[in-house]
Write a protein that binds this DNA or RNA. Sequence first.
DNA 1: CGGTCATGCGGAG
DNA 2: TCCGCCTGACCGG
Length: 299
Amino acid sequence: MPEGHKVHRISRAFAADFVGKKIAARSPQGRFAAGAAVLDGRKMTDSRAVGKQMFLGFTGGHWLRVHLGIYGMWDFAGRIREQVEVDPRAGTRTLRTVHPEAARAGSGTFPPEPVGQVRLRLATAVAVADLRGPNTCELLTADEMDAVIHKLGPDPLSPLGSPEEAEQEFVRRVRGRNVAIGQLLMDQGVVSGIGNIYRAEMLFRAGLEPHLPGRSLSAETAAALWRDWVGLLQVGVDTGLMLTMDGLGPEESALALASRADRHWVYGRAGLPCRVCGTEIALETMAGRKLYWCPSCQR
DNA sequence: CGGTCATGCGGAG
DNA sequence: TCCGCCTGACCGG
């Protein structure tokens, strides 16, 4: 499942091709039939992403909250605006449709038959979005949505206040806790959108020992973590990929992108030599997820 | 082609 | 702490 960058991209896809349009809603799988009936025929009025959560607004004050969990997904088909995509083999950035297959001439009828367990299908006259395997798919009032959002830590791309206030909020939430920084980065109440890959990579990039309590970090160290997240998230939204290794040329990038194991500093590299110092990358469970880190570079 | 794991997280127990 | 979600990537045979 996507970390925060992907959710922002999905939200943008809805903003581009669904917001402002009358929406046909149904639940082919049946598990969201009641909710789909409420939304059916309404106009989509807004699309927001906060961390890993997305909120779609509809006339009448209805908000659809979707959290994809570990393997949920949205599939788009039909006339969908292009987004930047990175070609792993060529190492190039190009514009592509969200769903290239749909652009093929004569590639079947529109709308396409649902594939798999489609919890919810949202459709305009020319575009379709299918939701499969979500962790959460529910209708909320505006007040209920606000309550959800206010429980979340800051998201650089949907700050409740100024960017400076978002940074200060992150610093405050980290330094106020006697909990390992490796746990705090995964806590969506501390900062929104960071998942297991970004956690491991950010800690390595900062040279931070994952077990350090949040309150042991200096304000500057915590602020630097935030600024790194701001940059990583922006790159992720721009490219659609989690590019966590800086300073690679086109050829190196192409190689790095070719396989996930070669794409990151430490994530997924347990037992392999650290790219910087050669020390064996360590693996342990933290916050219920696998944490990869270099015992030499991170202390 | 079958088994395992995972870019989460909420709820049951 | 375990389960549901019920997909897709990856790996060994």
